[in-house]
Design a protein around this nucleic acid. Structure first.
Lengths: 139, 139
DNA sequence: GTAACTGCAAACGATTTGCAATCTC
DNA sequence: GAGATTGCAAATCGTTTGCAGTTAC
């Protein structure tokens, strides 16, 4: 993390540690909760401010899912895609081997120049399928 | 629109008309503004409630873009993809001819069953590129 | 020592909810 | 006429900001 004159404080260390240990795309509230487990009393504003810094410095990506009102944080910064369970909200990373020529082809008519892309795959995760099998109809 | 005992009111008619006429993925605030042009004095809550109904009835889709805090509404309900300009926020529809076997292949290891997908293509739209050409560095 | 950072509380924007008056069927 | 819908205002949720005290460098 380095934008101008940025200082490493215990609070920021904790946020970075939590992000590094989280592969489940936590929301800001979840990051806050985990940070407070390491360091009770941390202010919410501090976590929000640190998350903004971490995103700006490119060490972490923001992720927004349709059907959800909150921002999630993704420690994986290299290009990748997402499996989104529409039942429980779980988000997993996947890598889609996609021929980018197809994308550029599609973007050409509107003269749109592509920087990146992210395939959002919606469906039902294995856990939710298993739950439905044991408890059809849900409760 | 039909969920249980739903009634067609002038306000709902106006929201449906606005959505039908909007191919630019308006936010709720933009829908409200356009509805009020047809029918001043409509309450914001009415528009929000109607949008929720329209989404639930499947006549319209919600769309959330990373880097944006609001929900957009998409009158196009058949599966399609999106060109998102990271400069001006403009969102356009595109159709990506994607071999779905690739998706199922990627989902298999985690036993995720796919319902749908949406390729978010980020980049810069033609208008923003032109603007930069005439006014480099921005203002 | 000083500029950056923290926690708190208040402000904020988007959306939702409670409710009495008003409409649609 | 009954039940659904409206508009308003207040409540809520996620996030940001102002500020006085504290800390990293």
């Amino acid at each position: 993390m380095d934008l101008g004159t940025t200082r490493m404080t215990p609070q920021r260390r904790a946020v970075l540690d939590v992000l590094a240990a989280s592969d489940d795309h936590p929301t800001a509230a979840e990051v806050l909760e985990r940070v407070r487990r390491l360091m009770p009393g941390v202010g919410a504003a501090t976590v929000y401010r640190t998350l903004a810094l971490v995103v700006q410095s490119g060490e972490c990506a923001q992720l927004r899912i349709s059907e959800e009102g909150t921002t999630r944080y993704d420690r994986t910064v290299r290009r990748h895609d997402h499996l989104v369970c529409t039942e429980c909200g779980r988000v997993d990373d996947v890598q889609i081997a996609l021929d980018t020529r197809v994308l550029h082809e599609a973007a050409k008519p509107s003269s749109f120049s592509i920087t990146s892309y992210d395939v959002h795959i919606q469906g039902r995760c294995a856990m939710c399928a298993a739950e439905d099998r044991h408890n059809p109809g849900g409760n």
